[in-house]
Nucleic acid binder design. Sequence first.
DNA 1: AATTAAGTTTAGATATACCTCAAAAGCTAA
DNA 2: TTAGCTTTTGAGGTATATCTAAACTTAATT
Lengths: 235, 235
Amino acid sequence: MPEIEALKSGSSTQRDGLNHQAIEDYLKTIYMLAELESPVSTSRIAEARDVKPASVTSMLQRLAKLKMVDYKKHSGVTLTTAGEKVALEVIRHHRLLELYLMEALGFEWDEVHEQADILEHVISEKLEERIAAFLGHPTVDPHGDPIPAKDGTIVAVDTISLANLATGTQAQITRIIDDANSEMLRYLAELGLTPGTEFTVVDIAPFDGPFSLQVGDNVKIVGRTIANSILVTFV
Amino acid sequence: MPEIEALKSGSSTQRDGLNHQAIEDYLKTIYMLAELESPVSTSRIAEARDVKPASVTSMLQRLAKLKMVDYKKHSGVTLTTAGEKVALEVIRHHRLLELYLMEALGFEWDEVHEQADILEHVISEKLEERIAAFLGHPTVDPHGDPIPAKDGTIVAVDTISLANLATGTQAQITRIIDDANSEMLRYLAELGLTPGTEFTVVDIAPFDGPFSLQVGDNVKIVGRTIANSILVTFV
DNA sequence: AATTAAGTTTAGATATACCTCAAAAGCTAA
DNA sequence: TTAGCTTTTGAGGTATATCTAAACTTAATT
Ligand SMILES: [Mn+2]
Ligand SMILES: [Mn+2]
Ligand SMILES: [Mn+2]
Ligand SMILES: [Mn+2]
């Protein structure tokens, strides 16, 4: 693991190994928020992590000292190369674990996020490698999210939100955002709307209208909230 | 998980899940030391955990407050039913994980202890259950240590140390103690002295003499240190 | 240019979970 | 009864992670 070597400096608080939790989570959060808007503001991070902005500020100062982020007062943060490396590694762990829990241990796609969120911080490089090998070095997780490669490469497929499609469009589901929302995931699985599914938009009701999707012989109807969470590619 | 519900009281420090580490480790230590001598003294625990006795005392007070141990100043501790339950659960996790890492992911028996020591504190009940099911609800781990059942039952086989055998005795290896000692484990694997192996003591050299063991067509020689770590049953 | 609202940072606190050292206290066996 | 060992106390340290309230910065609006 890159493992934030900088951290392991003085202290050597005996049984480490479970420490960096918070740091890794912040870096992951920053990475993800940066995909939407960069630099990432203090308040965005505070919202995402459900803490007060003041807490974020002090963590950003810590991360800056560790050279994990470039931080200048009042102007948000960006990850440094080192910070991005850690973020990508944690994300890799998370997504590999999600897929592993499903493939190897029969978990459902709405159950894996929580457990992966914990395990992502504690698996060794060796365990990561064995899991990846078992899975045949996959590039996408159960929710369609890309799995960063060991070298930090990440293959992002160009997608568009289902909510932006016009009637008549044919497309394929590639990714569900907010993979932490178990209820929605369970519901989508029930409807059969999972990554890989092809469909045609047969109707969009007016205003924030529900979308009617033709999937095989069936028509599935989803509201705007769900439509926003489904990313698709054209077939 | 029994999970020390008592702890989760007030604070509710949002992203818990990785906390109880130290507590669980102390309970595990106490459980294991109690097998040798009970009640367990402060200094025994301090040695085992490699901390100062003063640290142990304060942890024991904490554990007593949590009703995990019966503790009376100056007279050592014993686990309460609740404490033993937690200890057994952690041990169950540890041993299931060790076996799982070998069976499912191709780890070697000298590599699994370290990773299991971390993971044991963070797997959910569901993950534990899936792992146990995958393994066919095993009762011994790769080092021959018994795996406590969900209900806390633990099947201890009666064993004797190889070091206590007399020349001519036939026996079978059931268990290796100090499963944390990678080097010894690697060496034993090399010699083919793993749980299940049958052998006959063909010679014991004088003083703290090496033991010569007939295993199939070969004779393997082990010193006293190793002999002490090998527990056997008669065939 | 001055005002203002929104967002951000500081300062000061609180809390918890470890841990240490040094000294006091307690125990036990000769 | 006392020496020697073990254990506990008390004071203190470090690190992490959070909060509130006040002060400040920035950018947009008069
Ligand atoms: Mn890794
Ligand atoms: Mn996912
Ligand atoms: Mn369990
Ligand atoms: Mn073991």
